[in-house]
Design a protein around this nucleic acid. Structure first.
Lengths: 137, 137
DNA sequence: CCGTATCCGCCGAGATACTG
DNA sequence: CAGTATCTCGGCGGATACGG
């Protein structure tokens, strides 16, 4: 029958990153560590090992990788000092500071409303459990 | 310039959701669709099928699932109308509107700086490619 | 019309070991 | 000190089929 390319091999109809700027911009900083690093660098430049200490549970691999994507998007700048042994410093660019400022309201909101949300979750879970198991009426 | 208190307290492995409220709050809305749905519902309540049309490339499964997690955190309310066939309307709660307001600066920033970031990416990729393949010096 | 159940590919992220 | 290379695994999210 009429030959049609398999669905899986067809390219998207439009460039989604073009259609939805918000997702294109937010995706790289929505990972597990990006915001933490932006927050750490917001006030002060840091070296690689210092960032490891500031975020103790990040792996070397994810620290390196996250820093590079932040650098790629223009949020941080990487400076190498040819000392012995070499040192590398990371600092926010003006664009990075600008992003951080735009994030501040959301970050503050999260902290202010954290307990409210936890309560909402507990209540929701209790209600749905009750609906499935109506013993505890 | 608004410097916030540290995002990550450096207490070791206790309950991370307790230690890092920002991650606990932001994680559920950092998914692929949550922000889009919040944005759609910010102005006007919608029914399930209407949301499908508004966000054409979302699957039924992810729409249902995302709406449920938003409801669980208390951002949206679900109203069932026993019509024939049944209709379900979703609308933002006051908490949901409050969250959305806190997100607005970040959303606007993303749109305003989208092109700048795309340019930064292109330049970064070009430089790293050049570094690996120094033919075009 | 409004979902849930199941199967599955992909990728983010951890652990570990190795280079300059 | 500041990374990369490789392996691995769990979970997000897509496709499809079925239920109320």
């Amino acid at each position: 029958m009429a030959t049609r390319p398999p669905l899986s091999t067809r390219l998207p109809l439009v460039d989604l990153s073009e259609v939805c700027p918000v997702r294109d911009v937010m995706d790289p900083i929505a990972g597990k560590w990006a915001m933490l690093l932006l927050d750490a660098l917001a006030e002060h430049p840091y070296r690689f090992a210092e960032l490891r200490r500031l975020v103790p549970d990040i792996s070397q691999r994810m620290l390196s990788q996250t820093l590079r994507t932040l650098q790629r998007d223009g949020y941080i700048e990487r400076r190498v000092f040819p000392t012995k042994p070499p040192g590398v410093e990371y600092r926010l660019t003006p664009l990075g500071h600008s992003l951080y400022q735009a994030l501040v309201p959301a970050l503050n909101w999260a902290e202010e409303n954290h307990q409210t949300i936890r309560d909402a979750r507990r209540q929701f879970d209790a209600e749905t459990a009750e609906a499935m198991d109506p013993l505890d009426a």
